[in-house]
């Protein structure tokens, strides 16, 4: 019972990070692909304006996931860290580069500085979700051997499923970001950017959808157990839920209703993650360690759940306040395209 609850908390944390953190990484993807300094200036301006007040809070979900993972399932955490240290370390370095580059790019005063920081921010925004995705893929496809000791540092995450989930994570983030920023462009009253992000959102939805369907074949070949879990029982229900939410999102985007699309797109992504968890259940490391075996004792899990309750009591109103102020535009900075040699007004 306690194990189930802690597992649920972990899945919620991963989902929140994938949706909120993923969208911030996706914003970096659109920054990367926005085109030359002049052409991409307005897109980059909106990226900065949208992420500014929320990215730090969104990032904390990652810390939350790590903490729940190592406290609730210490043995599995040790095993994952002993095997998948290459992608995890790469992601961690990417997180530093992205965070710092984002924080300082507004201060850039010359073309070269702006390009340097912008490129660092955008490139690491693509690499981090890829490596996290590959890590999830490696865990889900049973690449982490039983502790102690570790698996192969490279082969463990370069199988087809891991690479595929890595690519899917990048695409998913780009999709979410496009939907969210289309809505932000509406709030900012910038018709050209509404059009730009609507097109990007629809395109990303198509690509992500195609990837999801094509990927099923990859998973069937590479990780049959995972495939079975995703195509039967509760896993299948989640996958179908994701397909429905994705289709609804596409329709909403088509009709320009970006506010509701925010939520349905998040549901589409969240359902996939829940589906993965259901497909793996009752295992945490497939074939090696079940959730029950990996879990800490109730002596730890009950206080951990108590902490989660405290967290909910404190965080829900705080986050509500942050997102309400954000969506109401109270925390918006003036929209400024990011062009070289222009120093944006900071708050």
């Amino acid at each position: 019972m306690t194990v189930d609850l802690v597992t649920a908390v972990l899945v919620i944390g991963v989902t929140a990070y994938a949706v909120l953190g993923g969208a911030d990484f996706g914003a970096g993807f659109w920054d990367l692909t926005a085109g030359g300094a002049q052409r991409g200036a307005r897109v980059r301006g909106l990226v900065k304006r949208s992420m500014g007040p929320v990215w730090e809070a969104n990032h904390v979900w990652l810390i939350f996931v790590l903490v729940i993972f190592w406290t609730g399932f210490p043995e599995a955490f040790g095993a994952v860290m002993s095997t998948l240290y290459v992608p995890l370390f790469a992601a961690a370095v990417g997180i530093i580069l992205r965070g710092v580059a984002f924080a300082v790019r507004g201060e850039a005063a010359t073309i070269r500085e702006a390009r340097g920081f912008g490129a660092t921010f955008a490139l690491s925004s693509v690499l981090v979700p890829f490596f996290f995705g590959a890590t999830i893929g490696a865990i889900a496809s049973g690449q982490v051997p039983a502790p102690p000791g570790g698996g192969d540092p490279i082969d463990s995450w370069t199988n087809a499923t891991s690479l595929y989930i890595g690519v899917l994570a990048v695409a998913t983030g780009a999709y979410l970001a496009a939907v969210f920023m289309a809505a932000d462009a509406v709030r900012a009253g910038l018709p050209d950017l509404i059009r730009a992000f609507r097109a990007r959102a629809l395109g990303a939805a198509a690509v992500t959808g195609a990837l999801a369907i094509g990927g099923i074949l990859v998973v069937r070949e590479d990780a049959p157990d995972l495939y079975d879990g995703l195509t039967s029982g509760a896993g299948l229900v989640a996958v179908i839920g994701s397909v429905i939410a994705g289709s609804v999102t596409a329709a909403l985007l088509w009709r320009g209703r970006f506010g509701p699309a925010r939520f349905t797109s998040a549901v589409a992504v969240g359902a996939v993650i829940v589906g993965f968890a259901l497909a793996l259940s009752p295992d945490l490391l497939p074939g090696v360690l079940s959730l029950d075996q990996a879990a800490a004792g109730d002596d730890t899990l009950i206080p951990l759940l108590a902490c989660v309750v405290i967290a909910v009591v404190i965080l829900v109103p705080s986050l509500t306040l942050l997102y309400r102020l954000t969506l109401r535009g109270t925390l918006d900075t003036e929209f400024r395209p990011i062009v070289a040699a222009d120093r944006e007004e900071r708050p």
Partner: peptide
């Protein structure tokens, strides 16, 4: 170390995570 003792000191990090979360939210606001 984490595998052996993560469940002993993890609670402290969980509470730290909550603090950090709140800090990140209000520093933005």
């Amino acid at each position: 170390w984490m595998a052996k003792f993560g469940d002993v000191f993890g609670i402290a990090f969980a509470l730290e995570g909550v603090s950090f979360f709140v800090e990140a939210i209000f520093i933005s606001i």
